[in-house]
């Protein structure tokens, strides 16, 4: 349980961190995905740049129409944030579902997004929240729409030398409702199926919907056909049943000893249905 040797550099600002990035260098955030892979020697970077001490990355800021969560904000600080709980309660709810007390105390949202584990919780939730990912690199700052962020199995739009400095969550209007539900893999407690739903209601019918799924495919994805099928419908048991039919369409459904493809597909249906029924 001893990592290969590496050099360690502590960054005190984002700019400093960026200047330290380069070939064979990895960012160390909360360390709760990275260090386990180092311990098992599945990963052996030459240098780690520690961004966990950069205070500015930990800030959760309440803006007029959105909330900006620093890339270094921990799951626990997100769970405890009052503004989020008021304006984006799904974030609070999901933060509490991640790992355990110790993991939540140190694991960060930026690290989770950058890691893009296909069974992680934040990816589904941020898809459903319609978040933006704020990224900074040598070339400056850019904002990536969450829909453009996930590129495949552990792959994202993040380029080498870039840091996730924040995610921006739009505040929910009063006609928006959201929920996150998760069926856990019994051993790791990561998601076999995680389903995040955000809907906007108008005149008793769904005006728009965003559904993020995790654990199911090779990366988190939006169940677009379910979203489409819901628009214009009142949320009833029947309309939900009809809408969720193809929740795994387009996803390469994974299979392992806890959930075969068939069962995982089934669970995806059950969970998206349950999430929607909770919003009825």
């Amino acid at each position: 349980m001893i990592p290969n040797s590496f050099d360690y550099k502590k960054a005190t600002s984002v700019d400093e961190a960026i200047s330290l990035l380069g070939d064979d260098v990895q960012i160390l955030g909360g360390g709760h995905s990275l260090i386990p892979t180092l311990k098992l020697r599945l990963n052996a970077p030459g240098t780690l740049v520690d961004i966990s001490k950069i205070e500015s990355l930990k800030v959760i800021r309440d803006n007029e129409n959105s909330i900006t969560i620093g890339g270094g904000a921990t799951h626990a600080s997100i769970a405890a944030d009052a503004a989020l709980s008021e304006h984006a309660p799904m974030m609070t709810q999901a933060a509490k579902e991640i790992g355990d007390i110790q993991v939540r105390n140190f694991g960060t949202i930026g690290g989770s997004m950058a890691h893009a584990d296909p069974a992680a919780d934040w990816p589904a939730v941020l898809l459903a929240c319609d978040a933006n990912v704020v990224i900074q690199g040598k070339g400056g700052k850019r904002e990536v729409d969450i829909d453009q962020f996930f590129k495949g199995f552990y792959e994202t739009a993040l380029a080498d030398g870039e840091i996730i400095t924040a995610v921006r969550i739009p505040k929910m209007a009063s006609n928006r409702h959201s929920v996150y539900v998760k069926f856990k893999q019994p051993a790791s407690r990561f998601a076999i199926v995680g389903c995040a739903v955000g809907i906007e209601m108008e005149g008793g019918v769904v005006k728009s919907a965003r559904i993020g799924m995790t654990g199911v495919g090779e990366s988190a994805y939006r169940a677009m056909n379910v979203e489409k099928a819901l628009v214009g419908q009142a949320l009833t048991a029947e309309s939900i049943e009809a809408a969720v039919k193809n929740v795994t369409e387009g996803a390469e459904v994974m299979s392992d000893h806890y959930a075969s493809q068939k069962y995982r597909t089934h669970l995806a249906h059950v969970y998206v249905k349950r999430a929607l029924k909770m919003l009825m």
């Binding site: 349980m1 360690y8 502590k10 160390l28 360390g31 709760h32 260090i35 386990p36 311990k39 780690l48 520690d50 966990s52 626990a76 007390i101 110790q102 993991v103 105390n105 140190f106």
Partner: peptide, 19 residues
């Protein structure tokens, strides 16, 4: 391996000593 860092519980096997 759980300990407290600045009052918060952490698995000390998941943190570098230098941190």
């Amino acid at each position: 391996c759980t300990i407290h860092i600045d009052g918060k519980a952490v698995k000390s096997c998941t943190m570098l000593a230098v941190q």
